[in-house]
Amino acid sequence: MDALKSAGRALIRSPSLAKQSWGGGGRHRKLPENWTDTRETLLEGMLFSLKYLGMTLVEQPKGEELSAAAIKRIVATAKASGKKLQKVTLKVSPRGIILTDNLTNQLIENVSIYRISYCTADKMHDKVFAYIAQSQHNQSLECHAFLCTKRKMAQAVTLTVAQAFKVAFEFWQVSKEEKEKRDKASQEGGDVLGARQDCTPPLKSLVATGNLLDLEETAKAPLSTVSANTTNMDEVPRPQALSGSSVVWELDDGLDEAFSRLAQSRTNPQVLDTGLTAQDMHYAQCLSPVDWDKPDSSGTEQDDLFSF
């Protein structure tokens, strides 16, 4: 819950932080000083300027060897085509990944977070970031790969997607708890209302004896509580940590079903599988986004697919 609360507080303090972009060759504004600060901008989305290598189908939802083989196929196909790589912007948030063309600003792909089953910074092609997700059109699994400016960037994108998945799962947990509370309150309110109706004398007997209905007592009954809980029953509950912020979080049926399955089948359902080692994760978390744009010590960066 700490990640969720800190993310909400950060967004309320400075929503404009989320509009910064990394990996864009110096076009961005001043960047936060450390990885923790940038992680807090996830709610509205972190932007990464990358190059799209392509996509291939895979048979399993996750796995280092599986993704490595898929990336190898994608890279080989991209090299064989001889075409310049498409420059894209990857927007990562707890909602998922939005992929747009840098030149036309046209939407290429919009992947809900619950469809993503794996992401990684490839070991062999260490400047490549990739994720595996279920197609929104059918049940097939797709591996999408992107060329980053350097290994640090690939690791940073991988960690960002993993963190977005974690925050999304926490949102789901909060929403589920809130819905259970509202359902319980609604049920209790309905029981109270039913009890009051059972003990209320029939209207005919009131008229016969000349008694008047006590409207004041009726007004004191917990009807307002019942209506408050039943009027918006169809509205999706939102985490309290975000009250007053500009973010509107809505959970669709697909996300609810997917996270429910994860909660039942996995020990740590909030953790998205990645190909990063503990050492890689520690190294990337210690980086400032400013470091992502620094040239690798191995030599001059080449803006070309064939540089790796």
Rank of each mutant, 00 (worst) to 15 (best):
K62M: 04
L90T: 01
A70I: 02
L251T: 09
M55T: 10
L90S: 00
P289L: 12
E40M: 08
V248H: 06
G63L: 02
A76E: 09
I97S: 00
S112A: 08
S117D: 02
L242R: 08
A241Q: 06
T36V: 15
S140F: 08
K19T: 10
V167Q: 11
W22H: 09
L50S: 12
R196D: 08
D291F: 04
P222D: 06
A133Y: 02
C286M: 10
L43W: 15
L147V: 04
D37W: 09
Q240K: 15
K5T: 04
A164K: 08
S297A: 12
L223R: 12
R9P: 12
E180Q: 15
K294Q: 01
R115G: 15
I108W: 03
L159Q: 06
T56E: 14
V111L: 09
S140P: 14
T158C: 14
S117N: 02
F171Y: 15
R266G: 12
V247D: 15
M153I: 10
E250C: 04
Q285S: 13
V174S: 04
L99K: 07
L159F: 15
L47S: 09
A168D: 03
Q106V: 14
T300R: 07
T120Y: 03
A69D: 10
Q106L: 12
G189L: 01
F165S: 02
T274V: 12
D214K: 14
C148W: 00
L147Y: 00
S243D: 08
T200N: 07
G194N: 09
K5C: 07
K204I: 08
K123F: 05
T225G: 08
A168S: 09
H144P: 00
L193P: 01
L215P: 08
Q197A: 06
K220I: 08
N229M: 10
P239V: 04
E109C: 07
E170D: 03
G24E: 08
M281Q: 05
K83S: 15
N211T: 06
A80S: 15
S140I: 12
S205D: 09
S260M: 09
S14L: 00
R13Q: 15
K51V: 01
E180K: 14
P237S: 13
L103V: 12
T218K: 13
L103C: 13
A156M: 15
A168N: 03
F146H: 01
L47T: 11
L90I: 13
Q240T: 11
G244H: 05
P269T: 03
K127T: 00
V75M: 01
M46P: 11
L42S: 11
Q163F: 12
A221R: 02
T267K: 07
P295V: 07
A78Q: 00
E301V: 06
R196I: 10
R151L: 00
V192Q: 07
R29H: 14
T274H: 12
Q173M: 08
A195N: 03
F306Y: 08
C119D: 00
C143W: 02
R238L: 13
Q134C: 15
T209W: 04
Q173A: 15
S49E: 07
Y118L: 03
D198Q: 04
Y118A: 02
W249R: 08
T38C: 11
R261I: 11
E216M: 05
R261Y: 05
A7N: 14
A121M: 10
G26V: 09
L50P: 06
D252A: 07
L4K: 07
E216F: 05
Q134T: 11
L203Y: 13
M233R: 08
E142F: 10
N138P: 09
K5M: 11
A263E: 07
E235F: 03
P202C: 01
D214C: 07
C119Q: 04
L147A: 02
I132S: 06
N232C: 06
N211D: 07
A76R: 13
Q134P: 07
E44Q: 06
A145Y: 00
L255W: 06
A154W: 00
M281L: 09
T41N: 09
E217M: 10
M46H: 10
Y283D: 05
I116H: 01
T274A: 03
E235Y: 03
D291P: 10
L99H: 13
P237D: 10
N105Q: 13
V207Q: 09
Y52W: 05
H282R: 11
L57S: 04
G24L: 08
W35L: 10
E217K: 08
A18K: 11
V58Q: 01
Y118K: 15
W22Q: 10
G194M: 03
